[in-house]
Design a protein around this nucleic acid. Sequence first.
DNA 1: TGGTGTACATAGCAAAATTGTATGGGATGA
DNA 2: TCATCCCATACAATTTTGCTATGTACACCA
Lengths: 300, 300
Amino acid sequence: MYTNGRRLHYFVTIADLGSLGRAAQTLHIAQPALSRQLRLLEESVGVPLLDRNARGVTLTPAGHSYYASARRLLDDAVLASARAVRTARGEVGHLGLGILEIYAWHESVLRALQTYRQQSPGITFTIEAMLSGAVTQRVLDGHIDMALAYTGPLADDGPLAAVPWIEDTYLLAVHEDSGLSRRPPRRLADLNDEDFILFRRDRSPRLHDLLIHHFHQHGLTPRIVQEGTTHYTVLGLVAAGLGCTVTPASAKRRLPPGVKLVAVSDLDVRMPINLVWRKDNPSPLIPRFVDLLCGDRPPA
Amino acid sequence: MYTNGRRLHYFVTIADLGSLGRAAQTLHIAQPALSRQLRLLEESVGVPLLDRNARGVTLTPAGHSYYASARRLLDDAVLASARAVRTARGEVGHLGLGILEIYAWHESVLRALQTYRQQSPGITFTIEAMLSGAVTQRVLDGHIDMALAYTGPLADDGPLAAVPWIEDTYLLAVHEDSGLSRRPPRRLADLNDEDFILFRRDRSPRLHDLLIHHFHQHGLTPRIVQEGTTHYTVLGLVAAGLGCTVTPASAKRRLPPGVKLVAVSDLDVRMPINLVWRKDNPSPLIPRFVDLLCGDRPPA
DNA sequence: TGGTGTACATAGCAAAATTGTATGGGATGA
DNA sequence: TCATCCCATACAATTTTGCTATGTACACCA
């Protein structure tokens, strides 16, 4: 029923030596045992693999075919174990990384990935860029191993672990040709009459609510005239002159042409970005990535 | 020590179902047996493959790696048997064919190969073109399965079997601009003063001796001024105007420019070309190829 | 032609590996 | 705290594998 590695090894040895007797010597077992094992193998395969003649045995055509397969199976079985061991040691493996779209090209991330690859060339990465709402969910699902995201406060006994990465501040993004560019607003309340653009709430409800709450506290009820699905589409709408938005300061690395960032005194939203993962994810790659990206800060 | 197919199947089932208990049910064995087999597998691999928690088991990173390998190993093991069976049936396989260089493009050969491939797309061929001396040796060695070659008379109890294929006649090959082309020789004896080219004796001693013997019998002692290693290099020398040679009539399909063939009355060497193979070669592909190439003529 | 040696197959028993039953221990949830 | 679920352990039962002795077929040789 099942292919036994021992039998394959017996068969390969017999075929190599062309003789049951010599193979038995080499394998340190008695010749009749080999004879039986060979018969069992042939029965499980379904066709004779060796021709028995007076001077020994020779491979049948089917035997030649099976011999090639057997050698490969034996090699592959050894490789499978070796690969598993190396995976356990963290020398090879895969790390699925979710990341807020805005940080996908952040130099700190890029440096960490680069260093990781230098230290362990066997590691492969998948980077998924998305907005905060989805990213945490995919870590919980187990679709990705780690994420850089705004998670809000985490329960200590929850399934997720996190360490702080950076704390991003928010700036106002305006078009260079707009009135806001010529007469920069001093406070958020000055923006009440401006056309406002924001990402859709369903993409990252937590962040959306946090921003809106902050605006209200400082006397701003933004007139949202347009919504984008991502930071970049939102900034694209700003570049098109359709209004202004707030955006993480990290976005300054990739601003569309015509858009500039303006600091507003009471826009002091601080968004802590965490590196999060499931506590029960046993991948040995995770602590190393944490170290690389966040140094040796204490876990949050 | 050896990877057992049964254990791999157990492991894959456990991983698929995420539980030893459910896997035991599916596999129709008791749960403790599975527990033990799993432990043995992990010991042979060298690292834990599954994390045991209260609700079942989950794959470790090493387990993920090994799971992928295990699935492939199981599939490959099944394929190995299937391939061996199909090889035994002659549905797939390999046929190594040695052929006299001059017949490598012979339409009869090409048609046979084409038909074979249509009937059995799984068959692969290796065609080796060489001169007669080497070709028989390689059949005896077992390096190739069959050959089209001049073998001379075969002993009935020898290791080789043969059926006649074609009987080639020999013609004189001369350069168009030579004196021989303008005044064609009537008999071999007319060639005593001509520059002669022949292949090297070590490449096909039998054929070489047969030709020389025939020449002597008809009063020709060829003045061999040049030797080539193959029919084609010899014909190349003729095309270069260095002399004349004799060549199988089959060569007319591929003559170099400037060379033409001339019949000489007493050059009536008949060279029977046989399809030969080792009698003890059990490949089921051989009789089919014999039928295709030689029809149902009786074996010689 | 019959002996002799070599090589694989078979038989019967012993050893080892695998499985089943009964039971234990730790985590989970009412 | 108790019931429940799930995997681990212990030991007996069964199956598989291996060893020794012997049989059979074939080639080689006198």
